[in-house]
Simulated scan of single mutants.
Amino acid sequence: MQVSSRHIDTWLTLQSNLGRAPNTIAAYSFALRDYQQFCSDQNTCVDIASREQVSQYVRNLLNRRVSKSKGISSSLFANATIRQRITVVRLFYDYLIEEGLRTTNPVRRGNQFNNRNRRDIRAIVPIQHKMPWIPNEEEWQRLLAEAQGMSLRNRLMLTLAYDGGLRREELCLLNTKDIDPSHRLLHIRAETTKAKRDRIVPYSASTGQLLLDYLRYRRRLTSARGAIFISESSRNIGMPITFWAWSKVIRSLGNAAGLPRFSTHTLRHLCLTDLARSGWDLHEIATFAGHRNTSTTLIYIHLSGRELATKLAVASSVHGLRLEDISESLQ
């Protein structure tokens, strides 16, 4: 097991040196330590594990329940979680092959084509394409009612996350220098984004007033420039808010509203869906969201039901005219 640990540590250090985000490194480490523990329980070394061990690990993940601090949850691991774990294991074995420590990778790749008959090779864990969850109008009003009792900072973060369609990292890492109040614009820096691309997003006048009120309040906590959103607790006062602290706020809000599926990403999903409902062009939404590929943006077009609703209206019109024609002809 010591040899496996050394190779895992070396690979994680390599990924860190290549500039992978800290959250990515943490996810890699968690996945590999979990796989290493499974192999240890099977009396197998990670370095020499076979496809049989990998298949057993997949089965283990498919049957495993999500652990909670107060016991065992009734929910199984999400498809995306399982795929992420397996992808990390595959990348690690690619590294072992490159270093001459293995000759084959026990985790096969999916979405490839056989050169002879062009058949698709099925992924080891098939992708499940699920629409993101967003609250309906009644659920949204419940969330807003609960949010009224939140602190000024949290209310602004909630508003800005929706108004700008911001990811958790983009929101929490906003800096005072990223604000252009004269034009009501936010500069989303490349290093805080998933696609590593700068973008500029506008915010509304109501959000601007809330932002102005918060910045006045913030000056009473600290005069230092830097992170916009800072801790208000006596222990860490003036320190930048962490991702986990914001996630905890959102989780508490969702639970209070009776909506445990509400997450930090829900506000972004809702924003982009609302833009699609409002008739924004696909490429306009992609630019606003910072998507590299418009196929990602299409999710929100589909979720809005805009295209289907338009086609249904046309179909209903044609159907109605045909019925009138039949009625007139047969009477």
Rank of each mutant, 00 (worst) to 15 (best):
V3I: 15
V3K: 15
R6T: 15
H7I: 03
T10R: 10
L12Q: 11
Q15K: 15
N17R: 14
N17G: 07
A31Q: 02
L32C: 02
Y35A: 07
Y35H: 03
C39D: 08
C39V: 03
D41W: 06
Q42V: 03
V46A: 06
I48K: 04
E52T: 13
V54W: 01
L61C: 02
S69W: 07
S74K: 05
L76K: 05
F77Q: 15
I82E: 02
R83T: 05
Q84T: 12
T87V: 04
V88G: 07
Y95C: 01
E98R: 06
G100T: 01
R102G: 07
T103L: 13
Q112D: 05
R118N: 07
P126V: 01
I127T: 13
N136I: 11
E137M: 08
E139L: 03
L144S: 07
G149C: 04
R153L: 02
R155A: 00
L166T: 00
L166P: 00
N175G: 12
S182C: 12
H183A: 14
R184E: 07
R184P: 08
R189S: 09
K194W: 02
A195H: 05
A195S: 14
A195G: 03
V201I: 01
V201K: 00
V201G: 00
V201L: 00
P202K: 02
Q209A: 11
Q209D: 11
D213W: 10
D213Q: 14
R218L: 00
S223H: 15
G226A: 10
W244V: 13
I250R: 02
I250M: 03
S252D: 14
G254V: 05
T264K: 11
D274M: 04
S278Y: 05
G279Q: 03
D281K: 01
T287E: 03
T287Y: 02
F288M: 02
R292P: 00
R292Q: 07
Y300E: 03
L308H: 08
L308R: 11
K311A: 15
S316Q: 12
S317V: 09
G320D: 15
E324V: 10
